[in-house]
């Protein structure tokens, strides 16, 4: 059984894995970080999005062995150690960007990747970027609004939707 080492949320971790161990399973089962969710397990829904070397990826469609030596960031790294929410998380709460919350970890990680690339995206750019993140509760409007708000932009113009 091969061993894999990587950095997850700033901590150096290692573990015994099978070749077929998915990154998301390593994160959830070996590390106990269950904030990253498995929704569809077919790379459609985006609930499992994490950052690998700064890039958003679907952790259900990457093997743990492929993340050897990588810098991985999960939803658990977003809030401050004292529990203060990351501005994107705070915006999701403020603008009701979640209902059941299942998709939220992936939504927040995708939003963080978007804002790192494009600090002031348009509404259309946000919707386009979320193409691979599916939410079955909100109808997306409040998620889009939350991300616009987190980027410091005016959200009043989409408030009526």
């Amino acid at each position: 059984m091969p061993e894999v080492t990587m950095t997850v949320n700033g901590k150096h971790v290692k573990g015994q894995i099978e070749g077929r161990t998915l990154l998301v399973d390593f994160i959830r089962e070996n590390l106990g970080l269950t904030g990253t969710h498995v929704g569809c397990d077919t790379s459609q829904c985006g609930a499992c999005v994490v950052h690998v070397d700064g890039k958003a990826v679907k952790a259900c469609t990457m093997f743990a062995a492929e993340a050897e030596g990588a810098e991985v960031r999960t939803i658990e790294s977003m809030a401050e150690p004292d529990g203060t929410l990351h501005p994107i998380q705070a915006a999701f709460r403020e603008h009701h960007g979640l209902q059941c919350g299942f998709c939220t970890p992936g939504m927040v990680m995708s939003a963080a990747a978007l804002l790192a690339e494009n600090p002031t995206p348009t509404e259309a750019e946000i919707r386009d970027y979320l193409e691979g993140n599916i939410c079955r509760c909100t109808g997306y409007h409040n998620i889009v609004k939350a991300i616009l708000a987190a980027s410091g932009q005016d959200v009043s113009r989409i408030a009526a939707e």
Partner: peptide, 9 residues
């Protein structure tokens, strides 16, 4: 192609 996360891999 696909979505941003797919394009990153």
């Amino acid at each position: 192609i696909g979505d941003p996360a797919v394009r990153n891999r």
